[in-house]
Amino acid sequence: MKIAVVLALITLAEIAIYYIPALASLLIPLLVAFSFAKFMLVILWFMHLRFDSRIFTRLFAAGLLLTLTVFILMLLTFFLRGGPAPTPPGIT
């Protein structure tokens, strides 16, 4: 129950900082940090990774690591290329 309360509070904080103009410059780092905290709380406690076999953690971490690699490489490719991403024919 404590974890659920913490998750609810983090969600409330996320929404609150979205509406505070003074925090505009810190918005993205704060939101990413809050999102990461919620992600970790759910997988470690609700999905029992903290208490279960390390093999499950490694399986999931492998998928996550591959995802982050593809994610960063894909965004970096378009960033280095410069300009907007090309759109398929027929799509504006």
């Binding site: 999931f60 998928g63 593809v70």
Partner: peptide, 8 residues
């Protein structure tokens, strides 16, 4: 783990 790649 594979679904992470799907949504990513």
């Amino acid at each position: 783990g594979s679904e992470c790649l799907f949504f990513g």
